[in-house]
Amino acid sequence: MGCLYSKNARNVPGYEEPTVLAAETPFTVDEVQALYELFKKISSSIIDDGLIHKEEFQLALFRNRNRRNLFADRVFDLFDLKRNGVIEFGEFVRSLGVFHPNAPMADKIAFAFRLYDLRHTGYIEREELKEMVLALLHESDLVLSDDVVEMIVDKTFKDADTKGDGRIDQEEWKEFVSRYPSLMKNMTLPYLKDITLAFPSFVLSSEVEDSE
Protein backbone atom coordinates (compact mmCIF):
# COMPACT_ATOMS: atom_id res chain seq x y z
CA MET A 1 0.00 0.00 0.00
CA GLY A 2 2.79 2.37 0.88
CA CYS A 3 4.47 1.71 -2.46
CA LEU A 4 1.19 2.25 -4.26
CA TYR A 5 0.80 5.58 -2.50
CA SER A 6 4.23 6.83 -3.44
CA LYS A 7 4.18 5.63 -7.06
CA ASN A 8 0.65 6.81 -7.83
CA ALA A 9 0.90 10.04 -5.92
CA ARG A 10 4.05 11.10 -7.75
CA ASN A 11 2.11 11.07 -11.01
CA VAL A 12 -0.45 13.53 -9.67
CA PRO A 13 0.06 17.11 -10.94
CA GLY A 14 1.22 19.39 -8.15
CA TYR A 15 2.24 16.48 -5.95
CA GLU A 16 5.09 17.25 -3.58
CA GLU A 17 7.09 14.91 -1.37
CA PRO A 18 5.73 14.66 2.19
CA THR A 19 9.24 15.18 3.58
CA VAL A 20 9.50 18.54 1.79
CA LEU A 21 6.04 19.65 2.93
CA ALA A 22 6.69 18.49 6.50
CA ALA A 23 9.88 20.57 6.59
CA GLU A 24 8.00 23.71 5.56
CA THR A 25 4.85 23.30 7.68
CA PRO A 26 3.93 22.36 11.27
CA PHE A 27 2.97 18.85 10.05
CA THR A 28 5.01 15.69 10.51
CA VAL A 29 5.62 13.39 7.53
CA ASP A 30 2.92 11.01 8.83
CA GLU A 31 0.47 13.89 9.12
CA VAL A 32 1.22 15.06 5.56
CA GLN A 33 0.58 11.51 4.37
CA ALA A 34 -2.71 11.40 6.29
CA LEU A 35 -3.64 14.75 4.72
CA TYR A 36 -3.07 13.14 1.33
CA GLU A 37 -5.93 10.75 2.14
CA LEU A 38 -8.21 13.72 2.83
CA PHE A 39 -6.93 15.51 -0.28
CA LYS A 40 -7.60 12.43 -2.44
CA LYS A 41 -11.13 12.19 -1.09
CA ILE A 42 -11.97 15.85 -1.81
CA SER A 43 -10.10 16.06 -5.13
CA SER A 44 -11.84 13.00 -6.57
CA SER A 45 -15.36 13.89 -5.48
CA ILE A 46 -16.42 15.33 -8.85
CA ILE A 47 -13.45 15.12 -11.24
CA ASP A 48 -10.83 12.53 -10.34
CA ASP A 49 -7.78 14.49 -11.50
CA GLY A 50 -5.80 14.98 -8.30
CA LEU A 51 -6.74 18.66 -8.05
CA ILE A 52 -9.38 20.36 -5.92
CA HIS A 53 -11.75 22.36 -8.09
CA LYS A 54 -13.98 25.11 -6.66
CA GLU A 55 -17.09 22.90 -6.83
CA GLU A 56 -15.30 20.10 -4.98
CA PHE A 57 -14.26 22.55 -2.28
CA GLN A 58 -17.86 23.76 -1.96
CA LEU A 59 -19.09 20.17 -1.82
CA ALA A 60 -16.64 19.34 0.98
CA LEU A 61 -17.55 22.46 2.95
CA PHE A 62 -21.31 22.58 2.45
CA ARG A 63 -22.28 19.11 1.11
CA ASN A 64 -23.53 21.10 -1.87
CA ARG A 65 -21.41 21.67 -4.97
CA ASN A 66 -23.44 24.67 -6.13
CA ARG A 67 -23.56 26.65 -2.93
CA ARG A 68 -21.68 29.88 -3.58
CA ASN A 69 -20.37 31.75 -0.56
CA LEU A 70 -18.16 34.83 -0.53
CA PHE A 71 -16.00 33.57 2.32
CA ALA A 72 -15.53 30.07 0.88
CA ASP A 73 -14.51 31.77 -2.38
CA ARG A 74 -11.94 33.85 -0.51
CA VAL A 75 -10.55 30.79 1.31
CA PHE A 76 -10.33 28.89 -1.99
CA ASP A 77 -8.51 31.81 -3.65
CA LEU A 78 -6.01 32.04 -0.79
CA PHE A 79 -5.35 28.28 -0.88
CA ASP A 80 -4.83 28.53 -4.65
CA LEU A 81 -1.33 29.95 -4.24
CA LYS A 82 -0.46 29.63 -7.95
CA ARG A 83 -3.73 31.36 -8.88
CA ASN A 84 -4.56 28.78 -11.55
CA GLY A 85 -8.11 28.02 -10.40
CA VAL A 86 -7.39 24.71 -8.62
CA ILE A 87 -5.82 23.64 -5.34
CA GLU A 88 -2.88 21.27 -5.68
CA PHE A 89 -1.73 18.96 -2.90
CA GLY A 90 1.23 21.15 -1.91
CA GLU A 91 -0.99 24.22 -1.77
CA PHE A 92 -3.53 22.32 0.33
CA VAL A 93 -0.93 21.27 2.91
CA ARG A 94 0.86 24.63 3.06
CA SER A 95 -2.42 26.52 3.48
CA LEU A 96 -3.85 24.14 6.07
CA GLY A 97 -0.56 24.49 7.92
CA VAL A 98 -1.64 28.00 8.92
CA PHE A 99 -4.67 26.42 10.65
CA HIS A 100 -2.53 23.97 12.66
CA PRO A 101 -2.73 24.53 16.43
CA ASN A 102 1.07 24.93 16.48
CA ALA A 103 1.26 27.46 13.63
CA PRO A 104 2.45 30.95 14.63
CA MET A 105 -0.39 33.30 15.60
CA ALA A 106 1.17 35.98 13.38
CA ASP A 107 0.57 33.73 10.34
CA LYS A 108 -3.06 33.20 11.33
CA ILE A 109 -3.61 36.95 11.80
CA ALA A 110 -2.00 37.71 8.43
CA PHE A 111 -4.07 35.02 6.67
CA ALA A 112 -7.33 36.43 8.12
CA PHE A 113 -6.31 39.93 7.03
CA ARG A 114 -5.77 38.75 3.44
CA LEU A 115 -9.10 36.94 3.60
CA TYR A 116 -10.94 40.13 4.47
CA ASP A 117 -8.93 42.36 2.11
CA LEU A 118 -11.38 41.53 -0.68
CA ARG A 119 -9.85 43.77 -3.32
CA HIS A 120 -6.20 43.02 -2.46
CA THR A 121 -5.34 46.63 -1.71
CA GLY A 122 -3.36 45.86 1.43
CA TYR A 123 -6.13 47.40 3.54
CA ILE A 124 -9.58 46.41 4.76
CA GLU A 125 -11.87 49.19 3.66
CA ARG A 126 -15.27 50.18 5.01
CA GLU A 127 -17.04 49.13 1.81
CA GLU A 128 -15.43 45.69 2.03
CA LEU A 129 -16.52 45.32 5.64
CA LYS A 130 -20.11 46.22 4.74
CA GLU A 131 -20.04 43.84 1.75
CA MET A 132 -18.92 41.01 4.05
CA VAL A 133 -21.61 41.76 6.65
CA LEU A 134 -24.26 41.75 3.91
CA ALA A 135 -22.87 38.45 2.57
CA LEU A 136 -23.09 36.94 6.05
CA LEU A 137 -26.70 38.10 6.42
CA HIS A 138 -27.49 36.66 3.00
CA GLU A 139 -26.21 33.20 3.95
CA SER A 140 -27.90 33.18 7.36
CA ASP A 141 -31.43 33.65 8.58
CA LEU A 142 -30.50 36.94 10.23
CA VAL A 143 -32.48 39.94 9.08
CA LEU A 144 -31.08 43.36 9.99
CA SER A 145 -32.22 46.68 8.59
CA ASP A 146 -29.76 48.71 6.55
CA ASP A 147 -29.63 51.26 9.40
CA VAL A 148 -28.56 48.56 11.84
CA VAL A 149 -25.96 47.20 9.40
CA GLU A 150 -24.58 50.71 8.94
CA MET A 151 -24.42 51.16 12.71
CA ILE A 152 -22.55 47.87 13.24
CA VAL A 153 -20.10 48.61 10.41
CA ASP A 154 -19.52 52.20 11.59
CA LYS A 155 -18.95 51.18 15.18
CA THR A 156 -16.55 48.38 14.23
CA PHE A 157 -14.68 50.51 11.76
CA LYS A 158 -14.15 53.33 14.25
CA ASP A 159 -12.98 50.78 16.82
CA ALA A 160 -10.48 49.15 14.43
CA ASP A 161 -9.30 52.16 12.41
CA THR A 162 -7.32 53.67 15.26
CA LYS A 163 -5.31 55.92 12.92
CA GLY A 164 -8.58 57.31 11.54
CA ASP A 165 -7.54 57.27 7.89
CA GLY A 166 -10.62 55.39 6.69
CA ARG A 167 -9.00 52.00 6.23
CA ILE A 168 -7.71 49.19 8.41
CA ASP A 169 -4.06 48.31 7.89
CA GLN A 170 -2.24 45.20 9.07
CA GLU A 171 -0.94 46.88 12.21
CA GLU A 172 -4.43 48.05 13.21
CA TRP A 173 -5.81 44.59 12.42
CA LYS A 174 -3.23 42.95 14.68
CA GLU A 175 -4.14 45.31 17.50
CA PHE A 176 -7.89 44.80 16.93
CA VAL A 177 -7.51 41.01 17.03
CA SER A 178 -5.56 41.25 20.28
CA ARG A 179 -8.63 42.98 21.77
CA TYR A 180 -11.06 40.47 20.23
CA PRO A 181 -9.19 37.14 20.25
CA SER A 182 -12.37 35.19 19.45
CA LEU A 183 -11.95 36.47 15.88
CA MET A 184 -9.09 34.01 15.46
CA LYS A 185 -11.08 30.97 16.60
CA ASN A 186 -11.77 29.85 13.00
CA MET A 187 -8.07 30.05 12.23
CA THR A 188 -7.21 26.99 14.34
CA LEU A 189 -8.48 23.52 13.46
CA PRO A 190 -7.93 21.13 16.39
CA TYR A 191 -8.60 18.25 13.95
CA LEU A 192 -5.20 18.86 12.41
CA LYS A 193 -3.51 17.59 15.57
CA ASP A 194 -5.32 14.28 15.20
CA ILE A 195 -5.24 14.01 11.45
CA THR A 196 -3.42 10.66 11.53
CA LEU A 197 -6.27 9.25 13.65
CA ALA A 198 -8.90 10.62 11.28
CA PHE A 199 -7.16 9.23 8.18
CA PRO A 200 -5.03 6.36 9.48
CA SER A 201 -5.00 4.11 6.40
CA PHE A 202 -1.78 5.36 4.88
CA VAL A 203 0.07 5.74 8.16
CA LEU A 204 -0.63 2.11 9.03
CA SER A 205 0.49 0.90 5.61
CA SER A 206 3.59 3.09 5.63
CA GLU A 207 4.60 1.73 9.01
CA VAL A 208 4.36 -1.77 7.58
CA GLU A 209 6.54 -0.71 4.67
CA ASP A 210 9.05 0.97 7.00
CA SER A 211 9.41 -2.19 9.08
CA GLU A 212 10.13 -4.36 6.07
Binding site: L61, N69, L70, V75, L136, I152, Y180, N186
Partner: peptide
Amino acid sequence: TTPLTMNAFELISTSQGLNLSSLFEK
Protein backbone atom coordinates in the same frame (compact mmCIF):
# COMPACT_ATOMS: atom_id res chain seq x y z
CA THR B 1 -24.50 37.05 22.24
CA THR B 2 -26.84 38.70 19.73
CA PRO B 3 -25.80 40.24 16.41
CA LEU B 4 -26.39 43.71 17.85
CA THR B 5 -23.75 43.26 20.52
CA MET B 6 -21.24 41.70 18.13
CA ASN B 7 -18.79 43.73 16.11
CA ALA B 8 -18.86 43.31 12.32
CA PHE B 9 -15.88 40.93 12.24
CA GLU B 10 -17.40 38.75 14.98
CA LEU B 11 -20.55 38.56 12.88
CA ILE B 12 -18.58 37.67 9.73
CA SER B 13 -16.58 35.00 11.53
CA THR B 14 -19.77 32.99 12.05
CA SER B 15 -19.93 32.28 8.30
CA GLN B 16 -20.05 28.61 7.36
CA GLY B 17 -17.60 29.43 4.59
CA LEU B 18 -14.97 30.18 7.24
CA ASN B 19 -15.60 27.01 9.21
CA LEU B 20 -13.09 24.65 7.63
CA SER B 21 -13.70 21.95 10.23
CA SER B 22 -16.45 20.64 7.94
CA LEU B 23 -13.71 19.52 5.53
CA PHE B 24 -12.82 16.84 8.06
CA GLU B 25 -16.31 15.48 8.59
CA LYS B 26 -16.85 12.09 7.03
